[in-house]
């Protein structure tokens, strides 16, 4: 009986019919919108400013370790200003949220949803197309910014980047896109849930603020509660530190920060806790090869991708259940 029913209601035709039409239209919208233009200018200026400062700082310190100079363009900060990756930590969520917070509710408000869905496409194509277009747009923006930074580096430092540096930067690019992907999925979810774009935008920003400001504080107190230090034995201290790290890593910004560290500081050998005996035989200060650094960030990267997929799936389910009539 249930089988008959399932067969009868099974849909025919690919759910991705029309997907590329949606992607093309949404990307064109993103790339020509004033909103994105402002954010692109902002991130470009940040990149040029911080990388330029970093380059002058690098040049002024003669005899600095000559390795991985190009990566330092991303990480060297000109106090009191943060480094370029420091800026990225909050510019990326901002761009991601700006790309998606009005994705679905605006279709409702403009009364375009019923008309678009009456074309021979499934809802799947519309939502996934919007999401893909956002990811591609981010990829495009960050690629341009990365090239800008590298170009500035060649000009200011007078040497070309090595293959290893380019490889690390590319991995960082991928990680940055998926870090943005998480926040885009959050914004997309809210754009399905809330009919008002302003509500969706504020809700997305609230979630982001929660994870970037309050979560570190909350995780500290939670760790003290979950693994209290009663006597002060090394085991107790270790347990609490483990809890703290585990809790903190629930925040995408923490994962991204650790990815940045592992990729841009090749000498970093572990992102977790390292006990002295684990360092036996290690040559400290020696950079890891790229493959080892990638291995180090692998769980973080998959975590970000998993969070993106999970949030997108939630938005998807919610969207499928929504009635078309406003």
């Amino acid at each position: 009986m249930t089988m008959v029913r399932a067969m009868r209601t099974q849909r025919e035709g690919s759910p991705w019919t029309g997907l590329w039409a949606v992607v093309a239209k949404e990307m064109a919208d993103h790339l020509s919108s004033t909103r994105m233009f402002i954010l692109e200018m902002l991130i470009a200026l940040t990149a040029v400013g911080t990388a330029y400062n970093a380059a002058s700082a690098i040049r002024s310190v003669a005899g600095l370790e000559p390795k991985f100079l190009f990566l330092k363009l991303f990480t060297v900060a000109d106090e009191p200003f943060p480094s370029f990756v420091g800026f990225l930590g909050f510019l990326v969520p901002l761009i991601a949220i700006a790309l998606a917070f009005d994705a679905v509710n605006n279709e409702f408000n403009q009364h375009t949803l019923a008309r678009v869905l009456s074309q021979p496409i499934y809802r799947d194509a519309l939502l996934f197309g919007k999401f893909l277009a956002g990811l591609f747009t981010q990829f495009l923006i960050y690629s341009a910014i990365w090239l800008l930074v590298f170009g500035l580096g060649v000009w200011q430092l007078g040497i070309p980047p090595t293959g290893e540096e380019v490889g690390r930067a590319l991995w960082l690019l991928v990680a940055t896109v998926f870090y943005g992907g998480v926040w885009m999925a959050v914004a997309l979810l809210f754009s399905v849930r809330f009919r008002q774009p302003a509500t969706a935008a504020l809700a997305s920003i609230a979630v982001w603020l929660f994870f970037s400001i309050f979560w570190p504080m909350i995780s500290t107190s939670l760790a003290t509660i979950l693994a209290p230090i009663r006597i002060g034995t090394p085991e107790e201290i270790l347990a609490q530190a483990r809890w703290l790290l585990a809790l903190r890593r629930l925040a995408p910004s923490q994962l991204y920060a650790e990815i940045v560290v592992a990729l841009l500081r090749p000498e970093v050998r572990s992102l977790g806790l390292v006990l002295p005996f684990q360092l036996e035989g290690a040559i400290l200060g020696q950079p890891l090869p790229l493959s080892q650094s990638v291995l180090l960030i692998w769980p973080h990267l998959t975590g970000l991708i998993a969070a993106t997929i999970l949030l997108f799936a939630l938005a998807y389910i919610l969207f499928q259940r929504q009635e078309v009539r406003a």
Partner: peptide
Amino acid sequence: RRYPLRVKAQVG
């Protein structure tokens, strides 16, 4: 329900 794409291709 089962062939929405075919229906929607012919119905405006």
